[in-house]
């Protein structure tokens, strides 16, 4: 039994350590600031380790950690402006440094990151949790503490914006085609 407990401990600690890159990647997708993303990931791990008693099911570790990351991110934004409520946060347009400030050689990557950075925060969070982390809508709703219907509508709007920005030709080109 001691061996079992030790193995469980090792596994959980390894999972927590391994989660750092995933937390960092998602935080980076939210803020596009490598330094801030690393701080958020670090703070998430610190809070996570400190609140292990709240983790009811080891299988839900990542969702639990991402929910903590969300709180860290919101706390950070609140620290920048004190008059925000959750609804305003969700609709918060991006004023964070865009990916253009980073060295990006791949044009597509840069364009997509620019488009993501332009999304309101709530949409940015939902689309990255679904697309990067493969969470179900129900899991995203739990992580962000919002109704599942809100997850779906935000995702819908996010994808519509991305589609328009990335997949459809610019308006001028569309007009030229229609003239032809």
């Amino acid at each position: 039994m001691k061996w079992l407990q030790s193995r469980e401990q090792r596994e959980l600690v390894e999972q927590i350590k391994d989660s750092r890159l995933r937390l960092y990647r998602l935080a980076f997708a939210w803020c596009h600031d490598a330094g801030l993303a690393d701080d958020l990931a670090q703070e998430t791990l610190t809070r996570g380790l400190s609140r292990l008693d709240q983790l009811r099911d080891s299988a839900r570790l990542m969702g639990w950690l991402f929910a903590i990351l969300n709180r860290c991110w919101i706390d950070h934004l609140r620290g920048r402006r004190e008059d925000f409520d959750d609804e305003m946060l969700a609709e918060l347009p991006s004023d964070l440094p865009g990916p253009d400030s980073h060295v990006e050689r791949q044009e597509t990557v840069s364009r997509v990151r620019t488009a993501i950075a332009a999304l309101p925060l709530g949409q940015r969070q939902v689309v990255t949790l679904v697309d990067l982390e493969d969470f179900s809508y129900a899991e995203v709703a739990e992580i962000l503490a919002i109704p599942i219907g809100t997850v779906m509508s935000r995702l819908c709007r996010a994808r519509a914006s991305l589609k328009e920005l990335l997949l459809e030709p610019p308006v001028a080109q569309r007009h030229l085609r229609s003239v032809k």
Binding site: V109, R159, L162, K163
Partner: peptide, 9 residues
């Protein structure tokens, strides 16, 4: 759109 997001990060 989904694949582009994956690719970007």
């Amino acid at each position: 759109a989904k694949e582009l997001v994956r690719h970007a990060y």
